[in-house]
Design a protein around this nucleic acid. Sequence first.
DNA 1: CACTTTATCTCGTGA
DNA 2: TCACGAGGTAAAGTG
Lengths: 251, 251
Amino acid sequence: MSITSFMGKETTPDLEYLVDPMPTEALRLINLRKSTHVMLIYGDMTASYEGRAKSQLEELMPRLVVSKPDGTFMIHEASKERPRLWNPPPSTLYASINLGVLTLRSVRASPREVVIVEIPVIRFIGAVRLGVTLNYRVFGTEEDMVNAIVNNPSIVEEGLQVIAREYHTIVGDIDILGKDSKGNLVVIECKRSQAGPEAVNQLKRYVEHLSQKEDRNVRGILVAPSISSAAYHYLRSYGLEFRRVEPKGML
Amino acid sequence: MSITSFMGKETTPDLEYLVDPMPTEALRLINLRKSTHVMLIYGDMTASYEGRAKSQLEELMPRLVVSKPDGTFMIHEASKERPRLWNPPPSTLYASINLGVLTLRSVRASPREVVIVEIPVIRFIGAVRLGVTLNYRVFGTEEDMVNAIVNNPSIVEEGLQVIAREYHTIVGDIDILGKDSKGNLVVIECKRSQAGPEAVNQLKRYVEHLSQKEDRNVRGILVAPSISSAAYHYLRSYGLEFRRVEPKGML
DNA sequence: CACTTTATCTCGTGA
DNA sequence: TCACGAGGTAAAGTG
C-alpha cells in the first residue's frame, strides 16, 4: 500500500498515513517523518523498559505509540492519562525491522533509559504535523498567589511587610519572607490546593532554620485554600499559623 | 465520506477512521465509539480549560486530541510528554456541532473541570480499540528496596533487627522501624532516587516524634542511592545518618 | 550541570 | 470518599 498524502508533491504534507502496511512501508514513513511529525502507531505489540527502573509488557496486545519530534515517546493503553511505558524528551527514536517485525527503540541518554517495542501486527500508522502554543499561561497557580500577596500583603495579615520572595536558604527556598507589625520575621508558605502534613513540615523546616540562624522568634504562616485536619493539628502543635486563601480569588 | 472500517458488519471494528470528514460524519463516529474506543482527532483547533485553574489556547493551530473510554481527555502538541490541556479520568465527553463547528466538551464532575475544544478544520479522526495490561509491575521501586532490607537488614547495618514495616504514627508512616545491635531504636526512610531536603525533613519528623514518645534516643537512617550536598549537611546537622543503597541492586 | 520546587500533578492504597 | 505519599514523576527555574 502506498503512502496516502494530502498536499502537493513539493511540500511536506501535514498528514500521511498507512493502513495495514508492510513493515518496510511503515519503516519508511517513520524514518521520513519522525523528526518533524508526531507519529501515531497502532497495532499489536509487546514492549519493555529498562532505565531508572525496569518493566515489561510481555502480552501481545493492541496499543498506541505516540512519538514526538522532540523525542517524547509514549505507549498508551485503553485507560489512564499516563502512558504505560514512555521516554521523556529528549530521547532518540530508532526504527528497524527484525526478523520481519517492526521494532522501535527509544533511547534516552541521561539517565540512560531504553524502551523497546516490537509490533508484529501493524494496523495503522500516521504522521501528523502539530503546532506549539507560545506564551502559554495558566491562571491560578501558586506563583499567582505569591504575586497577589506581594502586591497586597494585607491578604495575609494587616501590617505585614514583604522583605523578600523566593528567599534562598540551605534548607530550601522560602516563598515569602516578611515582617509583621511588631517587627517579627514571618515565613509564608503558599499552596494552591489543600495543604497536607508535607506542607506543614516544609514551613516548620524554614521557620526552625531561620529562627536558629537569626537567633530570634520567627512566625510561620501557611497560606492555602484549605488544610487537612491532621495537618492542622500538626501545624498548631508547633505554634504555626494557617491563613485561608483561594488561588482563584487571585485572578 | 463514509466510514472506512476493517471488519465484518456484525462485529465492532477495531479501527475506523475518516479523512477530512464533514463535522456531522465526525460527530457520528465520535458518539458511536467514544465509550469503547480511543478516539484520535487531528485538526486545527482552539481550546479552553477551567477548573482547579484556568487557561486558554486561543490561537487556531493543528493539535491532536486523544480521548479514552475511561474519560481521559488530552490535547497534545508537537512537543513534551504532558498534554497541553487535559481532563483526567473519570470525565465525560460530549460532542456537538455549533454553527457548523465540531465542538468537544470534556467534563469532570469532582472537582468540576471543563475542557472545551472547537475544531473548525477536521483533518483526521480515528477510533482504535486498545487493551489494558493486567498485573503490571515495575521493578526497582521504593517498595522493592524496603522488601530487600526487611529480608536482609544487613544491607543497612550489621546486627540490625527489623521490628516493623509501614509503622503508623501520627506524623506519618515509617518505612522500617528497627533495633540496632546496642538496642537503640532505628528509623529507616527509603528513597529510590536521590534524596533531597524533603526526605531529610521527613526522617527528622519521624525521629523527633518517636524519641519524644518513647523518651529515649532514636537513630534515623536515610537509605537512598545518593543525597544532595545541601541535604547531607542538613541531615548531619541533626545527627541523622545516610546509607547509600542502589534500588537496582534489589532486583 | 546539579539542585530545588511546583503541578489543573496522576495514581494507588488504606482509613 | 478523603487523605496521604510515591512516582521511571515531568517541567520549570536558578546558581
